[in-house]
């Protein structure tokens, strides 16, 4: 009962807070135009999607490309705001950014709070273990007694794995780095992640080993997220996505960042 009430309160608060920019003359679009910049939330650790190279501090990834294309369309600067999956909902609902562009998994929990655009990628779940781990050889070795599976708090994998694991022990870490440390130190056997992050692990560490599901395990479509209620802003972004899908800009970006395996087929417009 108390929870219900709290939820209701949040919802009302949300309407109060978010309802205001929903007004036509005071929507995100107008604010962006007025400010001359669009604030895009990214997770700078998201390799291939929105990754900040620690050596150069340069941003790289498909969604960085798409954000810049968006800024160009809008004719404004792009202001990248660091976020993460743990902070995503707060960052959006509290309007710290106009749009979150870092391949956000469309989960029901998030859909409750956020407004998603059409998905542009879809990824299954992948496991990362160490090269020398003797317990985990294939995907089927994961859900076994004694196996410790790490997930990062707030990621879409947390609820999914909590739901799916029957025998293995789930270890939820506060940070994404945490799950990697657990696995590398041997306190956990695997951590669950998606395709882009698994690629990063394989390319940047020498201990990681990919364990792919033997068949489709759990597909999650990825999209951009924004505040609910600002239909014009949402429509504008949808139109933008329609355009970049049509003209192949999106597909070119996917290819540039070698994400074809998770591209949503049929969106290239051909």
């Amino acid at each position: 009962m108390a929870i219900e009430m709290k939820r209701l309160f949040v919802a009302v608060g949300c309407v109060l807070l978010c309802g205001t920019p929903a007004l036509a003359e005071n929507g995100h679009l107008e604010r962006i135009k007025a400010a001359g910049e669009v604030r895009v939330c990214i997770w700078p650790d998201y390799y291939g999607i929105s990754y900040r190279n620690p050596k150069t501090q340069a941003l790289d990834g498909i969604d960085v490309d798409m954000a810049r294309a968006l800024g160009q369309e809008l004719g404004v600067r792009v202001n990248f705001i660091d976020s993460s999956f743990a902070r995503l909902i707060d960052d959006i609902t509290q309007d710290r950014c106009d749009i979150a562009m870092f391949a956000i998994g469309m989960t029901p929990a998030r859909a409750e709070k956020l407004r998603f655009t059409r998905p542009h990628l879809v990824s299954d779940i992948y496991a990362i273990t160490t090269r020398s781990n003797r317990r985990i050889k294939t995907w089927d070795d994961i859900d076994k007694p004694g196996v410790v599976v790490a997930v990062a708090k707030g990621t879409l994998h947390e609820p999914i794995m909590r739901d799916k694991l029957r025998h293995a022990t789930l270890l939820v870490t506060d940070t994404t780095q945490g799950r990697e440390q657990e696995v590398e130190s041997g306190r956990a056997d695997v951590f669950m992640t998606d395709f882009p992050f698994s690629r990063r692990m394989l390319e940047t560490t020498d201990w990681a080993r990919l364990v792919a599901p033997t068949s489709t395990y759990h597909l999650t479509p990825y999209a951009y997220a924004m505040q609910k209620g600002d239909e014009r802003w949402h429509a504008w972004v949808e139109q933008f996505l329609g355009r970049v899908t049509q003209n192949g800009q999106l597909m070119a970006a996917i290819k540039r960042h070698r994400l074809e395996p998770i591209a949503i087929r049929g969106q290239s417009g051909n």
Binding site: R131, S132, G186, D206
Partner: peptide, 13 residues
């Protein structure tokens, strides 16, 4: 001491 750490290191090299 995590033995896997060393094995990973060796097998990577």
């Amino acid at each position: 001491v995590n033995t896997d750490y060393f094995l990973n290191f060796y097998s990577a090299h």
